[in-house]
Amino acid sequence: MSPVFAILAAMTLASAIAAMSFRKLVHSALSMILTFSGLASIYLHLNAQFVGLVQVLVYVGAVAILVVFAILLTRDSTRDSSVRSLAKSWLTGLLVAGAVFGTLAAAILGSRALDRAAPQAAEITVKKIGEQLMTRYVIPLEVVALLLTAAMIGAVIIAMREKEGK
């Protein structure tokens, strides 16, 4: 195991577990940002520079801001913090998650198809990605553009304040 990956993986996992277990929502959001940054570094470590930077822009930038604003807008000041933050069926949830991990790990460790060495790192330039996006992937690109527009309009309409009595 390369030491770089070991450090990044430990940091990312620790912050993911922290994000899921902190009691205060803002602490969870900050931990989540650390997780996303760690994942971006792992993408860079895997030689996918463009994806790493997109991860920083979209997740560390946009999604984190969205989450922080959502926390700000939905703050319960009336509720005391002693109320339980875990669902009633938390033990079942943990068991299900553990079972899922066990199944995945058994499948990964038992697979012979994964025994392969890394090939020579390919030169992935932004120019190549742009050319592919404009030629082979142009229809998916347009569909995603349409989806993002629809999602943006939908989000605005859903979150718009309901007028009383209308």
Binding site: L13, A16, I17, A19, M20, S21, R84, S85, L86, A87, S89, W90, T92, G93, L94, V96, A97, G98, V100, F101, L104
Partner: peptide, 12 residues
């Protein structure tokens, strides 16, 4: 994935 799943299933 399991950490995310555990969080999604256990938090309120």
């Amino acid at each position: 994935f399991s950490v995310g799943l555990a969080g999604a299933l256990t938090r309120r």
